[in-house]
Design a protein around this nucleic acid. Structure first.
Length: 887
RNA sequence: GCGCGAUUAGCUCAGGGGUAGAGCGCAUGCUUCACACGCAUGAUGUCGCAGGUUCAAAUCCUGCAUCGCGCACCA
């Protein structure tokens, strides 16, 4: 080890250990194990996805939980896989097809197109998996699943069939969110509202009965005017009361439409009169249903106008048509004015274009087990962390609407419904295929084509991708695995998919497995850039995790991200954090390198503390290691990962390196006695071997590397498989700790003195200590080492006037400096210090003279305050004496 | 509109009824034989604003402000 470079180089090390873990099946979960089960299913990333920082955070947390569970002796299953991501994947392949061959999917046909998607999947599907491996994820890759694996697909079909026969899945012509780019229906959850700068057009329709009289109407969508079948006013609106039931002229195509009264109309908004286009607006559709209005669809699926009666509009894109329609109104003298108007418009989450409310034939699901799902979270049977997300969950469950599960795509699980061929033409022509319209013998729902010899055609639609992901926690497991590992223990995911995924999985768990799918859900933070913006490709503010790993190592990235990832709020990502992670790895590496330079003998391979020759520093660091271990357990119990990281950091850097290693440095030099060296090496090893285990979940690679190099694990063993010992390293040891702490604190004061008098840090100085603690003589060697000087204990000391001095926990410290003594300077310095201490005394006294405090605060608090006052007063007295001695 | 977060050092963030914390950055000094991805020392805060509860509030309560996020939307 001594021949290794000064700085830790993670790249080769990380690669080596990941390969070794894989080779030895360290990640494989044994379903026949007797050990307690711990399981997580990965939130399957899109098969075409590329790793981003959100994935890194999310999967690092899962890996930490899994590695920690292994250290607790559990049988761990982390089940990985990918999601077919219907729209995203299909869009990508279609785009490629268009760019390379200038063809659409319809040009090549369903079968050929699907072949292409599978090819694409084979080619690109493995990327994100490789990236997760690079990060160190300890998934059971033998169990890797894909949502379109044959058996998984079979499960999806089975579930559909079951729910259909139960009456929960139905087909109907409804108003859905239609994406004019993807040409498919979307669920409500796939629509994102975005504020828009729109225009509000004020126009007027002439009254049929009173030519020359007009009703003023405001709208943002003049291009759907051709589909208007009524104008609505509020029945309570006195302005229009006399018009209800009368007719107005729709300008184009010319028609007479009725003025109706409906409560939905807001009297305050616009002119108070609302044009009703039942085919192109959800609210209008409902009003239309109430008043039995005709539904005129004036848009094609791709968002272009479908209105042959208006040739100048027909075929135009909806936004072009909007301007054109406004122009037409103006020419007709029917446009009053146009106002700028800010409103919210629903956009397709994937295609980033405004969705079009559209009536179409779709499959819907009435959610099963709604009550169980709401109750499970409300009652705490399933724990949401942070807890506030439970409210979001409850909110959604209350307002739940039927789920549109069909998509007009090809890539996905095809709806397992067959129609009798002869009926199809009829049905398609009629465009009114309600299930109720079909004779029982004309429709078949099931896995295979009915084999009655008839001609059957399959429903062309596929299912929403989430309709397969909601089965993920159990459909990914075979029977034996399910028996051992279901329900899973933890789920780690983003709060943005509570509706899409988490709540639906709970429903599916109850409905199909009669059990909740997981016990705890941990919602990760959303990672933002330093300006607080969401990471996105278009902004280019999303650092590539692979670059970061190249630069800082996977361990550095993991540690840096985890140390700052707050519980429950967004994270502002700063690359500096990752650099700190790398620096930390380097610090650890060098601490071990230091030990190996002293001797490559692994004195402490047995991991026990020596029973003899221990000094306070040895016991102190062992005590602190034990404290660290139990404090980490508390933080883990609350899923406070940032806390865990911070504690791991502080222990190694402040306690182990800055204090312990500096204190025992002398023991590792050639000048030390063999015994001292043995003890120190053994303590180093005992503490470090455990510390590496504690750090392992956060930095798996470097801890494995060091454990093996330092022989903390036997040949062929891995730290990742080693159970953390139940017994603490030391029992008690508090006395040693306080003695060590006093020495560390005093050394600090002595260094202060040197700094204040501009004595070079490295220059050895002679210190005199009087009125010292009885045990101090045993520790002067270490004190001198830490402070950089020699320490002499005297009964009394007649200090030259102006000698720098300080009052410490172990006695009065003097730093005689020949030629540097300046009475005035020392007086001034002491004066400052006295002022500080005086202020402290006053503070304490003020508090203690407050009768209310003394009477009403807890006694131990008052006592503590008194103690503190006495200590300060004592110190003050000593300091004043020193100043007095200066004359 | 309804709901939920956040507001602490220049930056990123911990903390939490009883002495304001870390890392980075900054200043000064160190090529000290583990580490400059380092060591030592130091400076830096009306804990968003205003009330209230309390012996005691940065912390609990109420209101407000600013930023952010959900949900619902009026064409």
């Amino acid at each position: 080890m001594s021949e290794l470079p000064k700085a830790y180089e993670p790249q080769a090390v990380e690669k080596k250990w990941y390969a070794a873990w894989l080779e030895h099946s360290c990640f494989h979960a044994d379903e026949t194990s007797e050990k307690e089960a711990y399981s997580i299913v990965i939130p399957p990333p899109n098969v075409t996805g590329i790793l981003h920082l959100g994935h890194v955070l999310n999967n690092t947390i899962q890996d930490i939980l899994c590695r920690r569970a292994r250290q607790q002796g559990k049988e761990v299953l982390w089940l990985p896989g990918t999601d077919h991501a219907g729209i995203a994947t299909q869009t990508k392949v279609e785009q490629e097809l268009r760019e390379k061959e200038g063809k659409t999917r319809r040009d090549i046909g369903r079968e050929a197109f699907l072949e292409r998607v599978w090819d694409w999947k084979e080619k690109h599907g493995g990327i994100i998996i490789q990236q997760l491996k690079r990060l160190g994820c300890s998934c059971d890759w033998d169990r890797e699943r894909f949502t379109m694996d044959d058996d998984y697909s079979a499960e999806v079909g089975r579930v559909f069939t079951e729910l259909f026969h139960e009456g929960l899945i139905y087909r109907g012509k409804r108003m859905v969110n239609w994406c004019p780019v993807s040409l498919t229906a979307l669920s409500d959850e796939e629509v994102v509202m975005q504020p828009q700068k729109s225009k509000l057009y004020y126009m007027k329709y002439e009254l049929v009965d009173s030519p020359g009289e007009f009703l003023e109407i405001s709208t943002t969508r003049p291009e759907t005017l051709m589909g208007d079948t009524a104008v609505a006013v509020n029945p309570k609106d006195e302005r229009f009361e006399h018009l209800i039931g009368k007719k107005v002229r729709r300008p184009f195509p010319a028609a007479e439409i009725e003025i109706i009264a409906d409560d939905h109309v807001d009297v305050e908004f616009g002119t108070g009169a609302l044009k009703i286009t039942p085919a192109h607006d959800k609210a209008d559709f409902e009003i239309g249903q109430r008043h039995e209005l005709e539904i005129i669809d004036v848009l094609h699926p791709d968002g272009t106008v479908n209105c042959p009666e208006c040739p100048d509009l027909d075929g135009l894109d909806r936004f072009v048509a909007r301007k054109k329609a406004a122009e037409k109104l103006e020419q007709l003298g029917l446009l009053i004015r146009v106002e700028e108007y800010d409103n919210n418009v629903g956009f397709s989450e994937r295609a980033h274009v405004p969705i079009e409310p559209r009536i179409s034939m779709q499959w819907f699901l009435k959610y099963p087990c709604v009550k169980e799902t709401a109750d499970a979270v409300a009652s705490g049977e399933i724990t949401y962390r942070p807890a506030r997300w439970a409210k979001t969950h409850a909110n959604w469950m209350e307002n739940i609407q039927d789920w549109c599960i069909s998509r007009q795509l090809w890539w996905g699980h095809q709806i397992p419904v067959w129609y009798r061929q002869e009926k199809v033409g009829e049905l398609q022509a009629a465009e009114s295929l309600d299930v109720s319209d079909l004779e029982a013998g004309d429709i078949y729902v099931g896995a295979e084509t009915p084999d009655d010899g008839g001609n059957w055609v399959r429903d062309e639609d596929v299912m929403d991708t989430w309709f397969s992901s909601w089965l993920w926690p159990f459909s990914t497991m075979d029977e034996a695995t399910r028996a051992k590992f279901y329900p899973t223990t933890d789920l780690v995911t983003g709060p943005d998919i509570i509706f899409f995924w988490v709540a639906r999985m709970i429903m599916a768990g109850y409905r199909f497995e009669q059990q909740l799918p997981f016990k705890n859900v941990f919602f990760t933070s959303i990672i933002r850039d330093l300006e607080g913006r969401k990471m996105s490709k278009s902004l280019g503010n999303s650092p590539d995790p692979i670059d970061l790993m190249d630069q800082y190592g996977a361990d550095g990235l993991r540690f840096g991200l985890m140390r700052t990832a707050p519980v429950g709020t967004d994270v502002r990502f700063d690359e500096q954090l990752v650099a700190e992670g790398r620096n930390f790895a380097n610090k650890l590496y060098n601490a071990c390198r230091f030990r190996q330079m002293a001797t490559s003998d692994a004195v402490g391979r047995h991991g026990l503390m020596p029973s003899e020759g221990l000094r306070p520093y040895h016991l102190d660091i062992a005590c602190k290691l034990d404290a660290l271990s139990s404090n980490l357990a508390k933080s883990y119990a609350d899923y406070r990962f940032n806390d865990v990281g911070q504690q791991l950091y502080d222990f190694l850097w402040s306690e182990f390196c800055d204090k312990f290693l500096e204190a025992v440095k002398g023991d590792l030099r050639d000048t030390a006695t063999a015994e001292a060296r043995e003890v120190t090496l053994a303590v180093f090893d005992a503490v470090m071997s455990r510390y590496l285990q504690l750090l392992h979940p956060y930095m798996p690679h470097i801890t494995e590397e060091l454990s093996v190099r330092m022989a903390y694990v036997a040949e062929g063993e891995f730290i990742m498989q080693k159970v953390y010992p139940a017994e603490p390293l030391v029992a008690g040891g508090a006395e040693s700790s306080s003695r060590a702490d006093a020495v560390y604190a005093t050394a600090g004061r002595m260094r202060n003195l040197k700094a204040e008098y501009n004595v070079a840090t490295r220059k050895d100085v002679k210190f005199i200590i009087i009125k010292s603690k009885s045990w101090l003589a045993e520790e002067t060697d270490v004190l001198g080492l830490l402070a950089g000087g020699d320490v002499e204990i005297l009964d009394g000391y007649d200090a030259a006037k102006g000698t720098p001095a300080a009052v410490t926990d172990v006695g009065e410290v003097y730093m005689p400096l020949e030629g540097l003594i300046d009475v005035d300077a020392e007086k001034a310095r002491l004066g400052k210090e006295i002022a500080k201490v005086e202020a402290e005394v006053k503070k304490c006294e003020g508090k203690l003279s407050n009768k209310a405090f003394v009477d009403r605060a807890p006694t131990e608090l008052v006592d503590r305050e008194k103690e503190r006052r006495d200590e300060w007063a004592q110190k003050l007295k000593q300091l004043e004496e020193m100043r007095a001695s200066l004359g």
